[in-house]
Nucleic acid binder design. Sequence first.
DNA 1: ACCTGTCAAGTCTGG
DNA 2: CCAGACTTGACAGGT
Length: 340
Amino acid sequence: MIVRFGYVAMSLLVKNASPSKTITYASFSKLTDREAAIRKLERIAEENLHNTLRLLRHNRAYEIELYRLSSRLVPLVGHEELADWDPFPALADKFAEVGRYVREHGMRISFHPDHFTVLSTPREEVLRTSVADLERHTRMLELMGLDERARNNIHIGGTYGNKEASLLRFVEQASALPKRVLDRLTLENDDKTFTAAETLEACERVGVPMVLDLHHHEVNPGGEKALALWPRILDTWRRLGPRGEAEGADGRADNRQLDWLPPKIHVSSPRSDKDPRAHADFVDAGHVLRFLREIAPLTPRLDVMIEAKSKDEALLRLMEELGAEPDVRVRTQASVEIGY
DNA sequence: ACCTGTCAAGTCTGG
DNA sequence: CCAGACTTGACAGGT
């Protein structure tokens, strides 16, 4: 099994390269010249995209092919007082430049719209803003000129005192998304409400791949073993592929589709016993490796997103620790082969 | 340069 | 029904 590793949004090694710079609405609204204020927002967005490109160059130097973009590239976008502002025409070239770099270097990128994007909501207004947010994320990926391997990962959402009804509502409301939005979606199990088994259920019903978060699963397992769910999780990734090539001659997808878009998991370690849900600075290599060894026979390729406070430093440390293991062959600075 | 408080959002909990 | 907690990186305003 070939495993690539990636990290989230910001680097500890590249200084002053935040891709999430912003301005509060309070200070934005103090600016009297609205035209100038909007230009300021767009300037910040350009800076965020510029820093994103710097991070991608850094990733290339470290052979890191997996990266999650900041979901705060464009400050205040989606704010109700800025509904008339479309930032994307002014930013199209910058987005295209970022996308070109991603394509040229075979990188896999994603977004993770924050947890205020909830498709399970019973509130019409919340659904409206959530769909709009997914539309915007989809639009950014399209502006980058990336195909459907570049996706938006979200959680199911709240339970509102009735998990079954909420899951049903999620399936309905997700299925009603525009196709181009739905075709960019992945779903992730969360640490408080929807378990891996429940999220998998939603993935199968909606027809989108599942991102297994190992840490979330451990604090919210719902009585399931991750390994027991893994074959079904793999299947959610199998039907994907370039248009017209999704299925083999026998009508069943085969492992080659997993090469087009390898399954992705998230790993992180608990901050402490007292605060088990929070992310630690680094990830426990032995812990990650245990799961990787288990799934290796079933899984030709895997992408692993490291969610640790120490970001790319945590990635490098994990690589070092994995490299010391007898059954791990280091392929590049950010990928290994396990059980070869 | 550094510190502290505030900011965004939706949901959940406690009262 | 409402206030506060949760989460996170970064702003904002102070020294």
